[in-house]
Each structure stands twice: as C-alpha cells, then as structure tokens.
Amino acid sequence: MNITVKFFSSLMEYLPRSVEGNAMAVQVDPGTSPRQILARYRVPDEEVRTVMRNGVFLPEEDRDQPLEEGDVLTVWPSIQGG
C-alpha cells in the first residue's frame, strides 16, 4: 500500500538523501505500523516525541496499530509553541 511519511525539524536527517523537502511517498506492506516505519528509517526512539496520523496525535501506545492506504504519518522531535 502507498503512504506518505514526513519527518520534520532535526528528524529530517533520517530522510533518504534523494528526498527533497520533508515528505516522501513510500510503498509498504499492508499492516505496517508507525513504529515499523520509524525503525525502517532508523529513527532512534528517544528522538521521537510527537507522531501524527493524518494530523491526529498518535499516543505512544497506539504506534503499533496498522496504517492504511493513503495515510500520512508525520513525526517530530520536541516541539514547542509561541
């Protein structure tokens, strides 16, 4: 299935070099979870703070649930307001 993965801020260094900007379209096996995606790109757990699926906050305990076709997964390190 096809999903979009976006890494922001300091996590951008984990994007493959060929990717321009923050987002990449990737093809993954059905049933792939957010945590598996993070492992695939070797993003260390301790650097991940905020994960969103289609713009909705995904708590730590829900990061093993399977993604679906067309989902957008976005990941940040620490974020703050202003």
Partner: peptide
C-alpha cells in the same frame, strides 16, 4: 534550534 517556528508545519498538519 528552530524557535517557535517549528510550529508552522505542526499546526498546518493538525488543520
């Protein structure tokens, strides 16, 4: 590192 401006993409993503 990014100042408050890290929020631009965050707030856009959450609509």
């Amino acid at each position: 590192a990014l100042g408050t401006q890290v929020l631009m993409n965050v707030i856009n993503e959450v609509g």
